[in-house]
Amino acid sequence: MEPGTAAPDFALPDQEGRIHRLSDYRGKWVVLYFYPKDDTPGCTKEACGFRDRMGDLQELGAVVLGVSADDVQSHKRFAEKYGLNFPLLADPEREIILAYGAWGKKNLYGKEYEGVLRQTFLIDPEGRIAKVWRKVSPEGHAEEVAEALRALRGS
C-alpha cells in the first residue's frame, strides 16, 4: 500500500448498517483511517479530532471513514456518545484491515499481541493511494491530514 497504487475497494456497514464502498466515493478525496477500538482514550481523541475538523476536510473535498474490527452496535454507541459526524465502518472479519496492512504486532505494557494498527490512508479522487501515515499519533492527526490534503490539492 504505497502512494500511487490502487486502493483496495471494500463494502462495509457503518454504525447505521448502511453499506459503504470505496467506489461510491470516486471523484472525492477519502480519508480512510484505521483505529484499534471504539471508546478508548487514543481512538476517542483521534475520532473527535476528525469530528472537529470535518468542516475543513469537507471544504477540501474529502470524506472521512473510520474503520475498526468493532461491530456495528459498538460503532453506533461510540458515534452517539461523541457526536461523530462521519461513518465508522465495521470490519469484524478484518478483511479490509488486512487488505490495507493495518493489522500487526503491537506492544502494551511489555506484552506483545496482534491488533489493528493506527494508520491512515489518503485516497485521491481516482481511487489511488495519495499518502500513507503508518504510525499515527491521535493528537493533532486531523490537522495533519488537512494540511497534507491542502498540499496535494495545491490549495
Rank of each mutant, 00 (worst) to 15 (best):
residue 3 P to K: 13
residue 13 P to V: 02
residue 18 R to G: 10
residue 18 R to Q: 14
residue 18 R to V: 14
residue 20 H to A: 05
residue 21 R to G: 13
residue 23 S to W: 08
residue 24 D to M: 10
residue 24 D to Q: 11
residue 25 Y to N: 07
residue 26 R to L: 14
residue 30 V to D: 05
residue 33 Y to A: 02
residue 34 F to E: 01
residue 37 K to P: 07
residue 39 D to N: 13
residue 41 P to V: 02
residue 44 T to A: 00
residue 46 E to D: 11
residue 47 A to H: 01
residue 47 A to W: 01
residue 48 C to I: 11
residue 49 G to M: 01
residue 50 F to Y: 08
residue 51 R to D: 07
residue 53 R to N: 13
residue 54 M to W: 08
residue 58 Q to C: 04
residue 59 E to T: 10
residue 59 E to V: 06
residue 59 E to K: 14
residue 66 G to D: 07
residue 67 V to A: 06
residue 70 D to T: 03
residue 72 V to M: 09
residue 74 S to T: 09
residue 74 S to R: 10
residue 80 E to L: 15
residue 84 L to P: 09
residue 87 P to W: 06
residue 88 L to S: 01
residue 91 D to G: 03
residue 91 D to V: 02
residue 91 D to A: 05
residue 92 P to I: 04
residue 95 E to H: 12
residue 96 I to Y: 10
residue 96 I to C: 05
residue 97 I to F: 04
residue 97 I to Y: 01
residue 101 G to Q: 09
residue 106 K to A: 03
residue 106 K to Y: 05
residue 108 L to T: 12
residue 109 Y to V: 12
residue 109 Y to M: 15
residue 112 E to C: 00
residue 113 Y to F: 15
residue 114 E to M: 13
residue 121 F to G: 02
residue 126 E to H: 11
residue 126 E to I: 02
residue 127 G to Y: 08
residue 128 R to F: 13
residue 131 K to Y: 14
residue 134 R to W: 04
residue 134 R to T: 09
residue 142 A to V: 05
residue 146 A to L: 07
residue 148 A to P: 00
residue 151 A to R: 15
residue 152 L to T: 10
residue 152 L to I: 11
residue 153 R to V: 08
